[in-house]
Design a protein around this nucleic acid. Structure first.
Length: 436
RNA sequence: GUGGAUGUAGCUUAGUCGGUUAAAGCGCCAGUUUGUGGCACUGGAGACCGUGGGUUCGAGUCCCAUCUUCCACCCCA
């Protein structure tokens, strides 16, 4: 296949048969965020490259080798967003949100772009839902944001997923911890893998995250961040845990959680699933108290998380979680002959005006293929319109599941269809109750 | 960026030691039935066998390269 009919590597289409699942999931995300007071914010897909260098951190892998960066025709360096926090914070500062009533609570859904080698749960274009809570320093803010993530997951049926939390401290207490880590790992430097040797200088905390068996064995007995937290950070972390417990949220403390983006401070957390392959993190987030001032805003604390929607979909699929069915047409009108087609057009117009989902033939087909299509479309009812029906003003309304038919007057079709659709819905509702 | 696997109609696949018009099921279109879907039967459309080279009288089949997809490393959501 040539490039003209092939999607770019690492990108996916959401086809009509799946789009209702995305609509459902995204709807639940926005709805749940609303319960916590978060409103949607929409920001551009691209920003000045500098926005990401400043926030994500210019030593991170994301910035160093994964960004889609290019010069526009005006000579500006532009980057497709690899994540949304940077752009959202930029917008909050630029539009003065951070100077208004705090906290600012915003959420977002959008595509992100990273030049990576695709594999299970990893794409070059992927989608994130996330929230930013700007201006809240208290530990119950951390718990609230985590509770929101938890509730989003359960609102779409995901219960089997684990929450891991950690505190990586503030810049102050991290100095002591870095020193301790360096000392510890330096003593084992001849056993560490090549990348970890490199990390020893740049960012020793990342060694804790290494999956190579040797390194993770060494990391297992490395100094633990939690032992090096200053009093404030320790107190904060203890309070976060108390609030999580108060909210009824289960968690495990994993001192090896280290986020890959530079801006994190204090609380960090991940929701992890064992059902979707090596890329197991479905949601990652934490606190980033220094980010706003680092990006030229006032010194206000901030926190948030991001969820990978494709990974979420994988969890749903691999755990066999069923989402609501796509809506089906209420009525298919089969028409025979020009007169009947005109009448069908008129009926469709008024029924759609009344809010019904109505289909009719637009391919000029015969009755049988029309009925066949009606069946495939999943339409609840069908109606055949020919010369006889136009003449008498009456037609037979057919229930496509049971096959039973009733005679209806075309003048009162809308009312009768409403009754029939409701009756059918009631029937399946009763069936559902019986099954329980 | 490194490694392993993969590629034949829209989908799932068959295709022998290299041999003539590349096969089947599902799906799609139409008919059997001139006004009624699901079942059955009949017919039809649809594939430059991922792409480009090479070996050969002859390549879907063998060789090389390249791309895609999948999986893992790395990293992250």
């Amino acid at each position: 296949m040539s490039e003209i009919n092939r999607a770019v590597k690492g990108t996916n289409d959401v086809l009509p048969e799946n789009s209702h699942n995305w609509q459902f999931v995204e709807g639940k995300m926005l709805e749940t965020a609303g319960l916590y007071g978060f409103s949607e914010i929409r920001v551009p897909v691209f920003e000045h490259t500098e926005v990401f260098l400043r926030s994500v951190g210019d030593t991170t892998d994301v910035v160093q080798k994964e960004m889609y960066t290019f010069d526009d025709k005006g000579g500006r360096s532009i980057t497709l967003r690899p994540e949304l926090t940077a752009g959202v914070i930029r917008s909050a500062i630029e539009n003065g949100l951070v100077n208004g009533a705090l906290p600012v609570k915003v959420c977002y859904i959008g595509g992100c772009y990273r030049y990576e080698k695709p594999q299970a749960g990893r794409l070059r274009e992927f989608h994130q839902f996330g929230v930013e809570c700007i201006g809240a320093a208290a530990p119950n803010a951390d718990a609230e944001v985590i509770a929101l993530a938890r509730q989003v997951l359960s609102s779409i049926g995901i219960e089997k997923i684990s929450l891991e939390i950690n505190s990586i401290g503030c810049p102050e207490c991290r100095k002591a911890y870095h020193a301790a880590l360096k000392e510890y790992f330096s003593s084992k430097s001849d056993e560490l893998c090549a990348t970890c040797l490199d990390r020893l200088d740049r960012n020793p905390m990342r060694i804790l995250d290494c999956k190579s068996p040797v390194c993770s064995e060494i990391a297992a007995s490395a100094p633990v961040v939690l032992d090096y937290l200053c009093d404030d950070c320790r107190e904060h972390f203890e309070a976060v845990k108390s609030h999580l417990t108060a909210a009824g949220i289960e968690y495990t403390v994993n001192p090896h959680i280290v986020r890959g983006l530079d801006y994190y401070t204090r609380t960090v957390f991940e929701f992890v699933s064992g059902d979707i392959g090596a890329q197991a993190t479905v949601c990652g987030g934490g606190r980033y108290d220094g980010l706003i001032s680092q990006m030229g805003g006032p010194a206000v604390p901030s926190l948030g998380f991001a969820m990978g929607i494709e990974r979420l979909m994988l969890v749903l699929k691999n755990q066999g979680i069923a989402l609501p069915e796509a809506p089906v047409p209420d009525l298919y009108i089969a028409a025979l002959g020009e007169k009947a087609q005109l009448k069908a057009t008129a009926l469709c117009a008024s029924l759609r005006e009344d809010g019904f989902r109505v289909l009719t033939d637009i391919c000029g087909r015969g009755l049988k293929p029309q009925m066949k299509y009606a069946g495939k479309s999943g339409a609840k009812f069908s109606l055949v319109l020919g010369d006889a029906e136009i003449e008498t003003g009456k037609a037979r309304l057919k229930n496509m599941q049971s096959g039973e038919e009733i005679s209806v007057s075309l003048n009162t079709l809308s009312d009768r269809l409403l009754e029939c659709v409701n009756a059918q819905a009631l029937e399946s509702l009763e069936e559902a109750v019986l099954k329980d």
